[in-house]
Design a protein around this nucleic acid. Structure first.
Lengths: 349, 349
DNA sequence: TATTGATGCGGGAACGTTCCCGCACAAGGC
DNA sequence: GCCTTGTGCGGGAACGTTCCCGCATCAATA
């Protein structure tokens, strides 16, 4: 007689031994039968499978993980915007990065768990994480060091300074900006302005340096407007400052918006300030926002390739996990300029 | 002498017994010391903690889960758009729903794992899921039944027809639409048009019925444009159809866009077709898009409250999990109309 | 008929933790 | 000085798998 369950509402889950007893076999045999391993006669194998099917057996994932020594679970943290946690998904860049990371990992049998920005030990200590992806880590964030100290491999979409166990994928900020500026110049721009976040990430530092070098090499005036905080409001304000600021060096004839903003809002701001795009102003937005294809005129964007970054990065991470290597490694992913109407100077006056 | 590890690259993780041996105690005592349980002298407790700290001990989460009988892990699937998996995060509604779900769950000690739309058994079978949240399930999707058959509690942000083990939170579509239409009428609208997805979700069916009833009760003409697929392009096209279609019943003087689209693009489409908002057309968008606050004029939105839905729903789910009850339960969350300039008729001509 | 080898299946340890006990010892009551 | 009560700690089972073995059985060979 088996013991009757105390709580009628909780049917006790069927285990491997239950199936074994039902089929008149041992748990070893049933395990081998279900996993397709071991040396078993076809008849016994089928008998075990039949019993498992009939009883609705589902293996306990936790027990498997314990035996296997790993959980095939990857943490995912966004380092930026720690002051406003969980808003990152509303940015197209992070939305695509997150989705592509989860999709790629899952294809290789790993699941992705969402972790809050600036999370304490407490938050992930109880999770059996095989690795953690830190998206856009801010310089000097504790979490990267905490994770590495705990022996958990860290992976990032930004170049992480050579710490053992930290791997990364990144886009070449300098090359990307130079490409965009060259395109604008080729279309006739002589006074390209720029809108840039005030944050001190490595990426934005690279963008700033590339812009200055590019202007200096061509003896062109610099015009930079910084945004205090992320979000459409501050970025639009910075766009207006860039377009209407001091007139001494002449009005800008091109604008490169590196901060993430909605392309139609940027276009509207330009119009409001007396610019007709692309006649008076060539516009390029660093953005993954799909609305860029639907504005009038359509908006040229510089894509940082979040999906590609996530795909390449996750594959690299999987390789590191499977092979168990520990030395730091990194990969560069090229950015992509999608030229549309907003940055093409009309040929006829 | 302890065995030397074969692979020099893999330092074997320190276990509870290692700490116990080091401290000259038993694993039972160390476990109690670290967890703050049991009857221990302060001296022994501190000795165990010191040893654990010194050796960098971190408990094995998987072993704990096995002992505890649950993993504190919640799956998260988006049922809609199964044809284009992982794009859901780019929608502000789902981005906010996802973020708020993860944040609320984590506050209660549960982690959220991202699962693909239309996922097979294979994808989640190897995960020790305590429950699964299915966002916006399409009618007749296999996954809900599969999960329930596997004994995994299911939670949804849409009313799930009374299946045992399925819980839900939803917004009242009829009340929301009536509220928006009443507001438009109060501002002077007499011929409100509507843009609606062609999809057959329960929510959209409710919206359609509410609109027809409302128009019929006031003897006002109906004008509905359906969008074939989600995305800004099709929705904008539907907006143009709604505004320029057959002229027999007169041009619409108000527009309620229920399909998710970028508010600035909708405004631009209205302008392109000769409407000045709000003078010629009162506009309300069902949207969570933050850009609505930054358009000129600012855009009135009807919010479906994804963050509130996620918060209430996850709390409900936690309660169900902790108490172990199994009967279906549901909660309604009120929507919210954020009235801005686009739907306020200018007082003076 | 004995010896080998292959085949088919099961016993039991291990993964790392928590928790139910039981045992030793000290202190208190009569 | 004996029985009771309480305190402090440890032994060992259990959670549900997988996997390393070993033990039968049977065919093939010497």
């Amino acid at each position: 007689m088996t013991e009757a369950p105390r709580r009628p509402g909780k049917p006790p889950r069927v285990r491997l031994v239950d199936v074994a007893r039902e089929a008149g076999l041992s748990k070893t045999t049933v395990s081998a039968a279900l996993n397709g391993t071991g040396r078993l006669s076809p008849a016994v194998r089928e008998k075990a499978r039949e019993a498992a099917r009939r009883m609705g057996y589902r293996p306990n994932a936790t027990a498997r993980q314990l035996r296997a020594g790993r959980a095939r679970l990857i943490g995912y943290v966004v380092g930026e915007r720690a002051h406003a946690p969980w808003t990152f998904l509303e940015s197209p860049y992070f939305a695509q990065l997150t989705g592509a990371t989860a999709a790629t990992a899952l294809r290789r049998g790993y699941a992705v768990v969402l972790l809050p920005a600036g999370s304490l030990q407490q938050e992930w200590a109880d999770l059996p994480l095989d690795a953690v992806v830190v998206a856009d880590p801010v310089a000097g964030d504790r979490i990267v060091d905490d994770l590495l100290a705990a022996g958990i491999p860290v992976f990032s979409d930004r170049s992480v300074e050579g710490r053992a166990g930290a791997h990364w994928v990144d886009v070449d900020a300098s090359a990307a900006i130079r490409g965009a500026l060259d395109h604008l110049r080729q279309e006739g721009a002589r006074r390209p302005a720029m809108v840039l976040p005030g944050s001190a990430t490595g990426f934005h530092a690279g963008v700033l340096a590339a812009y200055r070098d590019w202007c200096a090499a061509r003896a062109l005036p610099e015009r930079i407007a910084h945004t205090a905080t992320p979000g459409n409001g501050p970025v639009i304000a910075a766009v207006e400052r860039a377009l209407t600021g001091c007139e001494k060096s002449g009005r800008p004839d091109a604008l490169l918006v590196v901060a993430e903003a909605s392309p139609p809002l940027v276009l509207e701001a330009a119009r409001r300030n007396g610019y007709e795009v692309p006649r008076d102003l060539l516009l390029v937005c660093v953005s993954e926002d799909m609305t860029a294809e639907h504005t009038r005129p359509t908006t040229t964007t510089l894509s940082l390739r979040p999906q590609e970054v996530a795909r390449v990065g996750t594959e690299l991470l999987m390789a590191v996990l499977e092979e168990g290597r520990t030395e730091t490694s990194g990969v560069w992913v090229p950015s992509r300029l999608d030229v549309r109407e907003s940055s093409r100077r009309p040929r006829s006056g």
